[in-house]
């Protein structure tokens, strides 16, 4: 079953729409879907009041739901939060907390996503073709429950603190990353193809941050372990290039790995004297 959603207006107020979730639409008729509740500002609304809903291909298995959002929903928060199966495709920008705490399924955004995309996710996949905001895959404020599984791929740039408190899973960023990437990480891998802001991997205990682009400096609380020719992202994927490997964060007795590409970071070459 494919459910097409068209925003009926340009949203000015924040909307909390946990009902835009394949699990919630599973086995529902069009009328049921229209009646699903969401919040616009402090007012209760229904899905039908804010979106035009079209179901195509209803005859196919209603177990396998794909939601296609056509239009800008950057004001709409918590799309796909907690989803376990199915697929969401957003043709436009997505709002905050996209796919927060998701367990499975897939979300694809052909546009940008705001902060906390994939926050506290446990499984599944998120693909963002534009940029992502701050706290990509990071926990809710105050919490230590970082990402525990799944995969996030961002084609553009991301903000600060991507993958903070991450335990497991993979984050791949093809653009640039902000500061404190992998802050307090405990496992998993973050791959940054572009340049990375300062303090990458600060307070990390385990896991790996791979920076293929430029990194201003390695944190002073990391030890230099040498030059490696390969950095592994997951079981199936590795990057073959010359990397400086730093291990830390020593303030946390950490054994996290920070790989920094050698060719793009000549200013780190003085570490080679330590070999």
């Amino acid at each position: 079953m494919i459910v097409n959603l068209y925003p009926l207006k340009t949203f000015k107020l924040p909307i909390i729409a946990e009902c835009i979730n394949p699990d919630m639409l599973k086995g529902k008729t069009l009328d049921d879907m229209r009646r699903l509740e969401l919040w616009e500002g402090n007012k209760r609304r229904t899905l039908g009041e804010l979106f035009k809903i079209e179901i195509s291909n209803p005859a196919s298995s209603s177990e396998n739901v794909t939601i296609i959002v056509n239009g800008d929903v950057s004001r709409v928060k918590r799309i796909g939060a907690g989803m376990k199966s199915g697929e969401i495709i957003i043709k436009g920008n997505a709002g905050m907390h996209l796919g927060a705490e998701m367990h499975g399924g897939k979300i694809t955004v052909y546009g940008n996503a705001l902060s906390w995309a994939g926050s506290m996710m446990k499984g599944g996949a998120i693909e963002i073709h534009g940029d992502a905001g701050d706290y990509l895959g990071a926990p809710y404020r105050g919490s230590k429950e970082g990402m525990r599984g799944g995969k996030i791929v961002v084609s553009g740039n991301v903000g600060n603190e991507a993958g903070a408190y991450m335990h497991k899973g993979v984050i791949k960023i093809y653009g640039n990353a902000g500061q404190f990437t992998g802050f307090r990480m405990r496992g998993g891998t973050i791959y940054v193809q572009g340049s990375c802001g300062g303090r990458a991997g600060t307070c990390m205990v385990d896991g790996a941050v791979i920076v293929v682009g430029a990194l201003e400096s390695a944190p002073p609380t990391f030890t230099f372990e040498g030059v490696k020719n390969k950095a592994r992202i997951d079981e199936n994927e590795a990057v073959e290039a010359s990397f400086y490997l730093f291990v830390g964060d020593l303030t946390e007795n950490g054994v996290g790995k920070l790989y920094v590409a050698r060719d793009r970071n000549p200013h780190l070459s003085n570490y080679e004297k330590l070999l």
């Binding site: 926990p139 404020r141 105050g142 919490s143 429950e145």
Partner: peptide, 8 residues
């Protein structure tokens, strides 16, 4: 103040 995660 310390525990926003307790509230949400």
């Amino acid at each position: 103040l310390l525990r926003p995660e307790d509230h949400y």
